[in-house]
Design a binder for these strands. Structure first.
Lengths: 144, 144
DNA sequence: CTTTGTTGTAATGTCAAGTATTACAACAAA
DNA sequence: TTTGTTGTAATACTTGACATTACAACAAAG
């Protein structure tokens, strides 16, 4: 199973907001045309990013902007903002393992800590990459 | 989105096979009762693990066993055996970004390497944990 | 060589999540 | 008041996970 495209779309959106903020008003329609999804998908995504304090969205007059400093927003922040399922747990367990089996009874005791380590390794790496880093990469391709 | 429970079920199954191999024949029905899923789910899972060379399954007479050495089987091996979707890519992209937008056109150039790093961090951690490690943990709980 | 228990797998169904789309009220600025 | 936009509900479609039934293929024991 893969992590949903909401995450990559969110990063795409942030890049667009930053890259074109001086050229035009950043509407959900404009963002939708770059990503190639329905504008409503973008609006819902922007709401999630807004709740997380990552963007500001102007109702009525329209327009989205990034809130705060690019180097303060990590990929983990974006990930957590849009991938909110499962109470933050990357790994999914089967329900109701057999309590009368020594293994079934203890499966969480046995595995939880290991899985947490794996998730932490991934999140740690995501925490180390900021939108500033991504923009530095992006400009190399945009300006050519 | 979470990683499917096939992975945690697979580890559960391997623990059971190893823990009870001297006490009883390990049938799909027995494993299913410990995990609390339908035996057919276990049989399909065992086929995936078999294709990956992780277990041996006897047709007819019945019974599953772990193939090879416990310390040679990593969690990444198990993960790759049962989570085969998306051509091994953890992150999912939206299709057909707008080629006439400088960001849309380059979104893969911009992001692919970063995402690969994140996935590598996670896989590297999974590679460092073997079924032997898991069994050492397991016995502490099973024998008490 | 028939019985018994098991695996391998197809067929089918259910459910949840992702994603697309339409519609429209709420809103801000011209 | 007009215009363009956001916020959000409602609805539908599709896909994948997971469950379940059924049965052929098979191996070993009697």
């Amino acid at each position: 199973m893969q992590i949903s495209s909401r995450f990559t779309i969110a990063v795409h959106v942030l890049i667009c907001i930053e890259a074109f903020k001086n050229e035009r008003k950043i509407t959900s329609e404009f963002l939708a045309s770059s990503v190639n999804v329905n504008p409503v998908v973008i609006r819902r995504l922007l709401q999630q990013l807004k709740k997380a304090g990552i963007v500001e969205v102007k109702r009525g007059s329209g327009g989205a902007d990034i809130a705060g400093n690019l180097s303060d927003i990590t990929l983990l922040d974006v990930y957590n903002a849009v991938e909110s399922v499962g109470e933050g747990q990357l790994f999914h367990f089967h329900d109701n393992p057999n309590p009368r089996c020594p293994v079934g009874k203890n499966i969480h005791n046995i595995m939880d800590e290991r899985l947490r380590e794996i998730q932490e390794a991934m999140e740690s790496r995501m925490r180390s990459i900021t939108i500033k880093n991504i923009m530095d990469d992006a400009y190399q391709y945009i300006n050519s």
